[in-house]
Simulated scan of single mutants.
Amino acid sequence: MRIGEAAAAMGMTTKTLRFYEHRGLLPTAHRASNGYRDYGGETVARLDFIRRSRVAGLTLAQIGDILQVRDAGGTPCAHVRDALARQLTGLDRQITELVALRATVAEYYDAAAAADSVSCDSERICSLL
């Protein structure tokens, strides 16, 4: 299948497929006699895996590592499980940091809402922060 067909099947652009090929996430496509990329049917399954991995927040480097395990004949399920565990740990940390940030911003906002902006301290850039 041509690059446009593969991209359309996955709701991606041809530029994305070329980028994935350049990054090594897709094997180099066979070139037809006219120079067009010609992808095999397994490309759609691989693109679907890449898309689902990106939705889960995995980086292209992590996806590449998983695909390398698969391409070497291994089963990458343990590797995927470990990557997802790291992703969950990172998300939990970010959520904790965001909750703390929200509390700080809410305190500043409450103080700002109650303050008289006319009496702002001119010595400081803004006395509200």
Rank of each mutant, 00 (worst) to 15 (best):
Ala103Thr: 12
Gly40Asp: 05
Leu84Tyr: 12
Ser117Val: 10
Thr104His: 10
Val105Thr: 08
Phe19Tyr: 11
Ala56Asp: 02
Asp65Met: 14
Gly57Ile: 14
Asp121Leu: 10
Gly73Gln: 11
Cys77Phe: 15
His79Gly: 13
Arg93Leu: 15
Ala111Tyr: 07
Ala115Pro: 02
Tyr108Thr: 09
Arg86Cys: 14
Ser117Thr: 12
Lys15Pro: 05
Gln94Gly: 06
Ile63Gln: 01
Asn34Trp: 07
Tyr20Cys: 00
Ala9Lys: 01
Leu88Asn: 10
Ala106Gly: 06
Ala114Cys: 06
Leu25Thr: 04
Ile66Pro: 11
Tyr36Cys: 02
Ala113Tyr: 01
Asp92Gln: 13
Asn34Phe: 06
Val55Glu: 00
Leu91Gln: 11
Arg81Ala: 15
Ala9Tyr: 01
Glu97Leu: 13
Arg51Met: 04
Ala8Trp: 00
Gly57Tyr: 13
Gly57His: 12
Arg124Asp: 05
Thr59Asn: 07
Val99Phe: 09
Thr28Trp: 07
Ile125Gln: 08
Asp110Cys: 10
Arg54Met: 14
Ala100Phe: 00
Asp65Phe: 10
Asp121Cys: 12
Ala115Cys: 06
Leu25Cys: 05
Leu58Gly: 01
Arg70Ser: 13
Thr13Pro: 02
Gln68Cys: 11
Ala9Pro: 03
Ala85Cys: 13
Ala115Lys: 03
Arg102Asn: 11
Thr89Arg: 14
Tyr108Ile: 10
Asp71Gln: 14
Ser119Gln: 05
Thr28His: 11
Arg86Pro: 13
Thr104Asn: 07
Glu5Gly: 01
Glu5Pro: 01
Glu123Phe: 08
Gln87Arg: 15
Arg51Ser: 05
Val69Ser: 11
Val105Phe: 06
Thr16Arg: 00
Ala114Thr: 07
Gly24Ile: 06
Arg51Leu: 03
Asp116Leu: 04
Thr43Cys: 03
Cys77Ala: 13
Ala106Pro: 02
Thr43Ile: 00
Ser122Leu: 09
Arg37Glu: 00
Thr43Lys: 02
Cys77Trp: 15
Val69Lys: 09
Ala100Lys: 06
Thr89Pro: 04
Gln62Val: 15
Ala111Val: 09
Arg93His: 15
Gln68Trp: 03
Arg46Val: 03
Arg18Gln: 09
Ile63Trp: 04
Gly90Ile: 08
Thr16Leu: 03
Thr96His: 08
Gly40Tyr: 05
His22Trp: 02
Ala83Phe: 13
Leu60Trp: 00
Gly74Pro: 08
Tyr108Gln: 08
Arg86Asn: 14
Ser53Arg: 01
Gly40Pro: 08
Thr104Pro: 03
